[in-house]
Design a binder for these strands. Structure first.
Ligand code: ZN
Ligand code: ZN
Ligand code: ZN
Ligand code: ZN
Lengths: 161, 161
DNA sequence: GGCATGATGTTATTTTATAACGTAGTCAGC
DNA sequence: GCTGACTACGTTATAAAATAACATCATGCC
């Protein structure tokens, strides 16, 4: 799965198309309105497997539309997408990334490569279990756990060992 | 230990004094210069067990000094303190908090109460172990894991059950 | 003292995010 | 169709968080 994030060995157009299809289905099911604008922002978030900043998305959007859009336009779309679980916000990067498993209940755990910038969503139950155990021991009620691990992905380790 | 973060039932002046003493010792040991300014910023970070923003600290600092300080003054001091492991930055809050165990090697794991704002540093090896296991399975080299769990502390659960 | 290094001061700017208010679609019910 | 409520979107201004570039000052070694 980490290999799948290497832009070189996977069909990323398929990633994008798939994400949009799932988003359409999920929103239809929920009666949420995935408008043209929101859908376009989602597509731009999925530009790559690197988290993207709101202003980078804004720039793309402006270029596509020919006219310059306002920051709020993007932030509002992102807010919707995050609420719907289609996109995650990476707190340590002030950036956004498409969710790898929308629909499933999870809070997002990521391995972020500091060399290539790719982020892989892991959502491993073992991490969540460890957090839940420790929280329970201390009587803390978990709402939203943030797990963002910085480091080096396999590919980048190979390049500079 | 979580009870110790309740401002009502602990001597927080002791927390502050203790943090400053340990900081003095650690910096002396390392030959790092804990200047008057840096020491004062550390003290201001320790104002409470709630993470504080750089600009909040800046305001306090200005008030104390009588003259208004520049943001960079605070950011530079914070950078030093974080490097020395005396302070952690909470990514999800853009805020800083005093380290509960300076000197020990760790990356900081926190339980952050959304009601009272207090943050407790946990640094539990089980979370770190789970992260390391999963990273190893994927060939990912861990550098700096960020774990920030939002939720409700015991005290705040009791208040509104 | 003279000099190198690191810390601080000063000013300006960048990046990220939100507030306030108005307009325009969308849809239900009549 | 029209009306009214609701939601989305546009526009402008502003706040909050962080950094850049350059000058000055302090510290400690030679
Ligand atoms: Zn892809
Ligand atoms: Zn996800
Ligand atoms: Zn205390
Ligand atoms: Zn710590």
């Amino acid at each position: 799965m980490p290999a799948a994030t290497n832009p070189a060995n996977h069909d990323h157009d398929h990633c994008i198309a798939d994400a949009l299809t799932r988003a359409d289905a999920l929103c239809a099911e929920r009666g949420a309105r995935l408008t043209a604008l929101r859908r376009q922002v989602l597509e731009l978030v999925w530009t790559s497997h690197r988290p993207r900043g709101a202003y980078a998305i804004l720039e793309d959007l402006s270029q596509r539309e020919g006219k310059s859009a306002a920051p709020l336009t993007v932030y509002r779309a992102l807010e919707f997408l995050v609420e719907q679980g289609l996109v995650h916000r990476l707190e340590s990067l002030n950036a956004y990334i498409g969710c790898a498993a929308p629909g499933a209940v999870h809070s997002g755990q990521f391995l972020v490569c500091e060399a290539c910038g790719n982020a892989v969503e892991i959502d491993d139950p073992r991490i969540r279990a460890a957090i839940d155990t420790i929280a329970a021991e201390r009587g803390f009620q978990v709402d939203r756990p943030t797990v963002e691990v910085r480091g080096r992905c396999t590919d980048c380790q190979e390049k500079t060992p």
